[in-house]
């Protein structure tokens, strides 16, 4: 069976994630899943825009502070880059390096999440801006919070992959798993870029 064969960097295929039927299925299935996720986030964005600054005592302008969000954005963008490194090393059969870069990705993601939790905490305590304060706050927390939940899930997922495969190296069985996890991570990153633009930047300008 192909998935169990031993590989060297020379015999390792260029696209390990698409070598087995399971891998190809995962690859397409995951892209489709991300299509559905896109519609989900589009719905949340639409709701946010419809309810922006509605029924609230603090507006976006007073609420958001760009420096913090900018740092968060940079962290997440960088983590996306490090996951690209990881996949690059996966394709070259450098298991240790791949694991390392995924580890860095998790660290950056965790820092992002910590900052986001701090941000929410700050809004609740400084501005009395809780989930149930107004239609606006509900829409804001649902959009950004859903993204945060995705980050959390991604962190758990990649961590599980790193730990599970630490001892046994790379194979055609787990390569697709790493690959779709990194796809997911990129997706989270792209969503954040939109959140940064639509929620924070437009919130400051508007």
């Amino acid at each position: 069976m192909m998935a169990e064969e031993k590989y060297t960097p020379q015999t390792w295929p260029a696209d390990p994630e698409k070598q087995t039927l399971e891998g190809r299925n995962k690859f397409i299935g995951f892209w489709l899943f991300l299509g559905g996720e896109t519609v989900l986030f589009a719905s949340l964005f639409a709701t946010y825009l419809a309810l922006k600054n509605k029924g609230t005592h603090v507006t976006t302008n007073e609420l958001f502070s760009l420096p913090l969000v900018f740092v968060m954005t940079m962290l997440l963008l960088t983590s996306s880059l490090t996951s690209v490194y990881a996949i690059y090393h996966m394709k070259n059969f450098h298991f240790k390096k791949m694991q390392f870069w995924f580890f860095i990705t998790v660290l950056l993601g965790a820092t992002f999440l910590a900052l986001e939790i701090y941000e929410f905490y700050h809004y609740v305590h400084e501005f009395d801006f809780g989930f149930t304060s107004s239609a606006f706050s509900g829409a804001y927390y649902t959009l950004v919070g859903t993204h945060g939940a995705h980050v959390l899930f991604g962190l758990g997922w990649i961590t599980a992959l790193i730990i599970r495969n630490a001892k046994r190296g790379l194979s055609l069985y787990n390569a697709p798993k790493y690959y779709v996890a990194s796809l997911y991570w990129h997706f989270i990153d792209v969503v954040w870029v939109f959140i940064f633009t639509v929620v924070y930047l437009l919130g400051k300008v508007g």
């Binding site: 029924g55 107004s134 509900g138």
Partner: peptide
């Protein structure tokens, strides 16, 4: 969320729609 956590997505008096 509106029914179980008292958010205001559809509560017109709190800005919902």
């Amino acid at each position: 969320f509106d029914r179980l956590f008292t958010t205001n997505f559809f509560d017109v008096t709190a800005g919902g729609n």
